[in-house]
Design a protein around this nucleic acid. Sequence first.
DNA 1: GCCCAAAAGTGAAACGAGTCAACTAAGTTA
DNA 2: TAACTTAGTTGACTCGTTTCACTTTTGGGC
Lengths: 194, 194
Amino acid sequence: MTVSSISRRERKKAATRQAIADAALRLFLERGYDQVSIRDIADAADVSTTTVFKHFTGKEALVFDEDQDREAQLIAAVARRTPGQSVLDALRRHVLDTWIRIETHPQRAEFTHLVDSTPELRAYAERMWTRHTKALAAAIADAFGADHDDLACAALARYVLDIPALARGRHDPRAAVETIFDILTHGWRPPITG
Amino acid sequence: MTVSSISRRERKKAATRQAIADAALRLFLERGYDQVSIRDIADAADVSTTTVFKHFTGKEALVFDEDQDREAQLIAAVARRTPGQSVLDALRRHVLDTWIRIETHPQRAEFTHLVDSTPELRAYAERMWTRHTKALAAAIADAFGADHDDLACAALARYVLDIPALARGRHDPRAAVETIFDILTHGWRPPITG
DNA sequence: GCCCAAAAGTGAAACGAGTCAACTAAGTTA
DNA sequence: TAACTTAGTTGACTCGTTTCACTTTTGGGC
């Protein structure tokens, strides 16, 4: 008899996964990314090293456990935008609503510091975003009935996905996001200097 | 007596470095990146593996031996642009003149294929470009007397450095570069569909 | 309740990238 | 020639990651 929609197996699996991710994050924050080995994490979570790799593709992935379905959300933002709203505006909304909320969360501070101070993680985080370029480009192209590899759509996808990296660390991230979308909408203008 | 401006030591060092880089590239092209170990390369160049790492920071760096001073050229393109030319146009010129020439060189084909077919190298090449973001952003800001971390300048720098990745593989790279610069100049417009 | 196939986890061994310390040998300089 | 510097060697070591052969758990059908 299946009590819940999720089997015990699934629950236990998720539990070990979570135990590993928790142990990893704790140790990383305590000692720093480079000072923690996979073996350390496995020991702390009381599993074998092979089990760690059954749940995560690599060491960097341990840090970004909750990173799923960004791609799906992005594509949905374009495909299911409210009628009359332009693609650019839909993306602007989505970035402001979704990403800003995550990035400016107070408890996020030490996590952000961990990522920023570890080149390996910075690179990984950046790739995570830009990896979705192809899918987002296709979604944008679909919105206009254009070819899936249309250059303008690919460029827009990439430029939008660059925004988190550009806005990160600004004192007013919302304003930064708006500024960049204005550039994409109206073209680049020299900064106004005092 | 020092015959040339460069000592024998320096010459021998450079020779070793070149021998390693040559052996590496040859083996990579022959067998594929993943099928060649550092040990293979060291053996082929008749040095020890530690010597390889004295000359190159890592395995990927062996592939991009001749990649220097892109940053210097970029900054010069902005700082020493012809009077009356806008920063955007100067960058457009520079990308068309410098990058396109390199990228479309016929002998470059198999090298490009090596990089494109190896995810590790793709990622590294991309980071190589975008690593110069900060420097280019500062150069652009200087051109307007703006702050070195001005957001609009940082965004432009990044977007320009993304162009190689976006234009690579298009059947007409020059046209692709022009299209993208038009987006940056006038803002993004939906593609025209048949 | 029992059996079986699938799934989760184990443990040890191995591989390749990269580092380190102690050494050798060659090049440079006085 | 003696003294100093530095490229390169050697071998052992760490660490991420994979492979493999093995045991345990568990869910479903009988």
